[in-house]
Amino acid sequence: MSSTCYLSLDWPTAPAWVNYNSLQQLSYFTTVFLAAPLALLTGLGMSPALSTRFRRISKLVSIQAARSLHFLVLVWFLVFLVVHVALVFTTDLQSNLNQMYAARGGDGWTGLWVFLASMAVVIGGWIAATPFTLRRLRALPHHEQITQHFCIQGWSGVTKWGGVSMRTILDLVKPRPEAKWVVFYSLGDGPDKWRYYDAHPIEQMSHRLTMLAYDMNGRPLSFGHGAPLRLRNEVQLGFKQVKWIEGIEFVADFSRIGGGHGGYNQDHEFFGYHQAL
């Protein structure tokens, strides 16, 4: 059976689908043995924690390259899913679902009900596993603070920040007792294209002026100021206020993250871990 047969919508009767044709075999082979492993590898390549720990791998395949490949794999999965589900539903819905979900033939509706129940479980698990999104962060209690930042380069500025207090995040996450540091990973890279990150003592996360900001002076953050989300820890230096936050990790120590000195700047310009201001 050729691809033109599929495109013509003049499909054969049900018995003709028993043996997989060459196009079906190629599609399943690509999905199972090429796309699935590539999705796993590129997913690991996008991980902030892994990319900073396994620097040789991230140097060969940059995080941006992993994102691009992962997106292409996603497109393949979506196309495969749409075509596959369309064929299941349009060729013989009851018989197909009975064989796939109820281990039986016939025209009953058992397979459909099992299919719907399994989809409900999948959707529920997906929702439960979904990390914090900006929408969920905005639904948390709003925190505002007006602070003056003094830069070691000689300038200062007063800004009104709006967002979520890290106290609220701590109450939700409930870090384990062994967690001593909070590592903030940025979507941005440093000058040498390695992931920008910075570690902060967990004690400072309960400070009243430590927050995740998504507003600045009453308006959404601009890209240049760290949109969609940035850190404000007012007892730390400016370069430690991580912009474009992608992930947050609570760790016992940071010796195996990046260069092991607690941040991108410390890894590259180390002159002692900075004390709180």
Results as ranks from 00 to 15, higher is better:
156 S>D: 11
95 S>H: 15
211 M>H: 08
263 G>L: 02
92 D>V: 03
198 D>A: 10
63 I>T: 11
20 Y>T: 13
257 I>T: 10
155 W>A: 04
122 V>I: 15
233 N>F: 10
36 A>H: 09
146 I>L: 12
131 P>L: 07
185 Y>H: 02
1 M>Y: 06
247 G>S: 15
243 K>M: 00
153 Q>E: 15
121 V>C: 12
241 Q>S: 01
211 M>A: 11
6 Y>R: 14
252 A>F: 03
141 P>Q: 13
53 R>L: 00
65 A>K: 13
165 S>I: 02
153 Q>R: 15
140 L>S: 05
249 E>K: 15
62 S>R: 03
124 G>D: 05
117 A>F: 04
261 H>D: 02
274 H>I: 03
115 F>C: 14
56 R>A: 09
131 P>C: 09
135 R>P: 01
199 A>C: 05
18 V>W: 07
271 F>H: 14
18 V>D: 11
273 Y>G: 06
87 L>F: 10
98 N>G: 09
185 Y>S: 02
16 A>K: 08
156 S>C: 09
45 G>Q: 02
237 L>S: 13
10 D>F: 07
116 L>K: 11
174 K>S: 03
139 A>T: 05
36 A>L: 14
163 G>K: 00
191 P>K: 07
134 L>H: 10
96 N>L: 03
82 V>Q: 05
241 Q>C: 00
58 S>W: 03
61 V>F: 14
116 L>P: 06
169 I>G: 06
1 M>Q: 06
42 T>M: 08
45 G>D: 01
102 A>D: 07
60 L>P: 00
13 T>S: 09
208 R>W: 07
